[in-house]
Amino acid sequence: MREIEAKTITEAVKKLCIDACYYLNDEILDAFRKCKEKEESPVAVDILSQLEENARISREGQFPLCQDTGFAVLFVELGADVVIKGGTLPEAINEGVRQGYTEGYLRKSIVSDPLERKNTGDNTPAALHLEIVPGDKLKITILPKGGGSENMSEVRMLKPADGAKGVIDFVLERVSKAGPNPCPPIVVGVGIGGTFEMAALIAKKALLRPLGSRNPKPHLAAIEEELIERINHMGIGPQGFGGRCTALAVHVEAYPCHIASLPAAVNIECHSHRHKEIVL
């Protein structure tokens, strides 16, 4: 068994929170550049340039990329041969979020009760998704998720007869209705199958794939190709002012499901697609 100190996890999570909110990944900056090349609208090109400039200002350290520094969503892969000493995993992670959001001057956007709506003041609790995997490593991925894009997401229980076309129509309907609200150009995570809650979770996990990568299964890759093309023909464009570039990427993931079901989920992510990971 390998021992990992809880405080090591807390330190790592704190750094991940701050790094994710200040340093936009190169894959997004590359995608902005590619969008500018194919964009026909001068307003859209101007907006993409502003987003590049925004990333530069943020990287210099004084301002988070977006004021909505999100719900701290954490995907943790815990090796079966790891023992955590000096605390529990959820405590260690929440302490990291608390310290990261406080010391990093990140916005505290969590209310303790969805109806009473009192701010918890430290952006905890995190949304923690834990998976036990073979080995003696601990992999932590953070995806600070903004409210504006999350609000445009949806889970729908389709009929098996709806098939691939039903899933595609559902995704297109959701993206079209979202329009300018989720801060396009967006990243679209699609989860097909599993149960009601699993569809949503795999849609969210799909966001974390390398940007623009294709699902290795040809029938799912074909859905991704069709969706990105049709979404970018909608005309919504950066910020919804009109243009060619509405989505930077569409990632589809699937999971086995019940004979009676075809769950589908669309998780929309804004252009401020912030995620970082570490392996301890």
Partner: peptide, 11 residues
């Protein structure tokens, strides 16, 4: 409309 997500620039 201000540019959503250009929060550092707007600041």
């Amino acid at each position: 409309a201000a540019v959503g997500g250009a929060a550092a620039l707007i600041a």
